[in-house]
Amino acid sequence: MESQNYKNHRKFYPPHHFIYLPLLILLKGFGIYKIFNDEQHQLIWILFSIVIFLLFYLAIMVRQHYALGLQNRLVRIEFKQRYFEIFGLRSDEVEEKLKFSQIAALRFAYDDEFKELLYKALHENISGDKIKKSIRNWRADHHRI
Rank of each mutant, 00 (worst) to 15 (best):
A59Q: 13
R107D: 15
G128D: 08
S101H: 12
L118A: 01
Q42A: 10
V94N: 04
G69R: 12
K34V: 00
K34Q: 07
K120E: 05
E116I: 15
L106E: 09
A109M: 06
E95T: 11
Q64T: 11
E78G: 08
E96K: 15
K80P: 02
D92A: 08
I50H: 02
I86W: 04
A67N: 09
V75N: 14
L118R: 05
E113P: 05
S49H: 02
K97W: 02
A121L: 07
L70G: 13
A104M: 03
Q81K: 13
Q42K: 14
I35R: 00
I77S: 07
I52G: 00
V75T: 14
E96H: 12
M61K: 14
Y20M: 07
S101N: 15
M61H: 14
V51G: 00
E39G: 03
K99C: 10
H65L: 11
W45C: 02
F30A: 06
E85C: 06
L27H: 02
R76E: 13
G128W: 12
L21H: 07
L106M: 10
R73C: 09
Q64S: 12
G31H: 08
I77P: 01
K97V: 00
A59T: 15
F53N: 07
Y33G: 02
L47V: 12
K120S: 04
S134R: 10
E85F: 07
I135Y: 06
I44V: 12
N37D: 02
L23T: 14
Y83E: 06
E113G: 05
I135Q: 09
R63S: 11
K115P: 03
A109Y: 06
I35H: 01
F56Q: 14
L58D: 10
V94L: 03
R63N: 09
I25W: 04
L26Y: 06
S101V: 09
A109P: 06
Q102G: 08
D112Y: 14
L122K: 00
A67G: 05
Y20H: 09
D129T: 14
K130C: 05
F114T: 04
S49Q: 02
Y57T: 04
G88T: 03
I60A: 10
I52N: 01
L26W: 04
L118Q: 05
D112K: 15
E113R: 04
G31R: 08
N72P: 03
R82L: 10
K34M: 08
N125A: 10
K99V: 10
Q40M: 08
K120I: 02
S91K: 08
R82A: 04
